[in-house]
Amino acid sequence: MVLRHPWIAPELSQVGRTEQEWVAEMRPAFDEAARTPPLREASSPPRQDAHPRQIRDDDFAYGLERVLDGLAQGRTR
């Protein structure tokens, strides 16, 4: 399955890659991420007592770290 996004094809064409090449390269990482349970859940304390703002901030920081990790991994290939 190839995802079609209006922004991805032009961006990839600027670096000389097709959307299909990008998906083929990233597919193993996507599959691994889908198989691996998040370590954060296993290592984090229960959040029921946390303030909602703290939960949002923690979730945002966690998501941002994952995005940055993905971008960094993409640059090393």
Rank of each mutant, 00 (worst) to 15 (best):
D59E: 12
D57A: 13
V15Q: 05
D69G: 00
Q14N: 09
H5E: 04
R53W: 10
P6V: 09
T18A: 01
S44D: 10
V67S: 02
A33M: 07
R4V: 13
R53P: 00
A72P: 00
V15E: 03
M1D: 08
G16L: 03
Q14E: 14
R47W: 11
Y62I: 05
D59A: 14
T76N: 09
E25V: 08
R77Y: 11
A29P: 01
E25H: 12
F30Y: 15
A34S: 12
H5Y: 09
A29R: 13
R35Y: 06
M26Q: 10
R66C: 05
V23H: 05
Q54C: 07
R75K: 15
Q48A: 15
A61L: 15
R53L: 13
R4N: 13
Q14S: 13
Y62G: 04
Q48F: 11
D49H: 14
V23S: 04
G74N: 09
P28N: 07
E32G: 04
E65V: 06
W7V: 14
D58N: 02
R66E: 09
W7G: 02
R77Q: 08
S13W: 11
E65R: 00
R66L: 15
A33H: 06
R66D: 02
D57I: 10
S13A: 15
R77M: 12
A72S: 06
H51E: 12
P37F: 06
R53K: 12
T36H: 09
R66Y: 02
R75H: 11
